[in-house]
């Protein structure tokens, strides 16, 4: 029987607080969820890549919308856009900047971010910044910027343990509408991916494959999916 082609759509999990598997990070989620009530002016969220910082920042932006607050989210990549992008953002109730370490050592961006930071703070607005390291280790050239990074509440997001990773995997698969048996989940983590972004990408592939083959996921089937993925 020919393989049925599933509809092509980008992996797009709804990144809100309900779809975030907390692991040991309940406190962080609590602080972020209550940011508008607690009036925490600045939160610096740091942790290794793939621990869910982006998901949390997205979640808080969604939340802001429901609370009638204006919000802006930006994730820095290696190629930086024009720093004019920050103009006017000082009027936003909440600004979330992901991967802030990527602007370090770029004089234009450091200066622009410093100016934005002062204006935004003077306007009494709220800022959430994420980075892969704590504020002290950010290699900013502007010392004024460095001291400002540690000003607010600094929170470290802890990576998930293997057991938590497994639970997260099962949780996320359920969210996508299919089931991953525990033994298959363990096998996947042990052999194919240990960080969340790679796991989510794999889940997307598995989702497509199970949908196309109309089969339940087993270890042999997983191996087959992975070998198909690796063949050009």
């Amino acid at each position: 029987m020919p393989k049925q082609l599933p509809l092509q759509f980008e992996f797009q999990s709804n990144q809100n607080f309900n779809t975030f598997y907390p692991g040991g990070n309940e406190e962080i989620i609590n602080h972020l969820q209550h940011i508008f009530n607690n009036n925490e002016q600045q939160i610096f969220l740091w942790g290794e890549a793939g621990t869910g910082k982006t998901h949390l920042l997205q979640a808080i932006c969604q939340e802001s919308n429901q609370q009638n607050k204006t919000s802006f989210y930006f994730s820095f990549r290696k190629t930086l856009p024009n720093s004019e992008m920050l103009n006017g953002l000082e009027n936003f109730d909440l600004v979330c900047l992901d991967n802030i370490e990527l602007i370090a050592q770029n004089p234009d961006w450091e200066q622009a971010f410093f100016n934005f930071f002062n204006l935004h703070r003077d306007n009494n607005k709220q800022l959430i910044i994420s980075a892969h390291c704590p504020p002290k280790y950010l290699p900013f050239q502007l010392p004024d910027l460095k001291t400002r990074m540690g000003w607010g509440l600094t929170l470290k997001i802890a990576p998930l343990t293997d057991e938590q990773l497994l639970n997260a995997l099962i949780y996320k698969a359920n969210d996508l509408g299919f089931e991953i048996p525990v033994n298959v989940g363990r096998f996947l983590i042990a052999h194919y991916a240990k960080d969340l972004p790679s796991i989510w990408m794999l889940l997307d592939k598995i989702n497509h494959a199970t949908l196309a083959a109309k089969r339940k996921l087993t270890i042999p089937f997983l191996k087959q999916i992975m070998s198909e993925q690796n063949t050009p």
């Binding site: 920042l57 997205q58 932006c61 969604q62 919308n65 204006t70 919000s71 802006f72 989210y73 930006f74 994730s75 856009p81 024009n82 004019e84 992008m85 920050l86 103009n87 006017g88 953002l89 009027n91 936003f92 979330c96």
Partner: peptide, 25 residues
């Protein structure tokens, strides 16, 4: 979250004006 949600809309007559913080956006 970066490009769409931050736009602020103002409806006036037959025009829907979308306000953005700067030219770049």
């Amino acid at each position: 979250s970066t490009w769409i949600r931050p736009l602020q809309a103002v409806e006036k007559g037959d025009t829907l004006k979308l306000l953005a913080p700067n030219r770049f956006i």
